[in-house]
Amino acid sequence: MVSILPLKLIEASAHMRGKKLVGPVNLTLAPTGFTMVIGPNGAGKTTLLRLMHGLQRCSKGQVAWALPAKQARDKQGFVFQSPIMMRRKVIDSLAYPLHLRGVGKTAARERAAECARNFGLSELLESWAPMLSGGEKQKLSLARALITAPEILFLDEPCANLDGRATREIESILRQVQARGTRLVMSTHDMGQAKRLANDVIFMLNGKLHEQADSEKFFNAPVTPEAKAFINGDIVE
């Protein structure tokens, strides 16, 4: 199978009505690993992930997958900062991405049920998705993004509104997903979480890629004073 990775961003920028949101960014995402995107509110973490995924138009430069963008999209998953729940039952929400790929109704539902088991959602199969709790919605979003076995999964602060137990649950799922060879790119505000999960770190500030390094190096010996301050929990302007 031909891989869509590596992903290359070359001088990539995102504008909105003439205002620059992010960029220019240069970076390469290698085929394996867990990249953590951190930075203060409004730094451009969400925009960067959306830019990579193709939800945000690249206004300058380019976002280049190893395959054409349309084809590459099929091999990506995205978990949004606030879960988008279709007005369907949990089982139908889970089966929907398979349905889009032409999997038959019965087969899709069987796989959805199996997937739900792996995520501890079995009890909720018949529930109405928009009525789930925040944690359950986030788990469903994750399951729905993973059911098509993407090569790369983007997660935008998936644990932002979750308690400790739910966060641990998600983190353990992510470790398994990574062990299976899925490329992970995630944003977070939780430094502890970043340290626990990341192989490498992208520190965003004011729409720019301010610092990028291996996790160990970044947390133990950050280069820029802003990164140092951010890791220490100081306010970074």
């Binding site: 995924h53 939800l55 999209r73 998953g77 991405p97 889009l100």
Partner: peptide, 20 residues
């Protein structure tokens, strides 16, 4: 407006979007 990002992310075709 609610579904936009999700359906685009899932690569749904135009017809699939309207149907959903």
């Amino acid at each position: 407006a609610e579904y936009h990002d999700l359906l685009i992310s899932m690569n749904a075709t135009r017809a699939q979007r309207i149907k959903a």
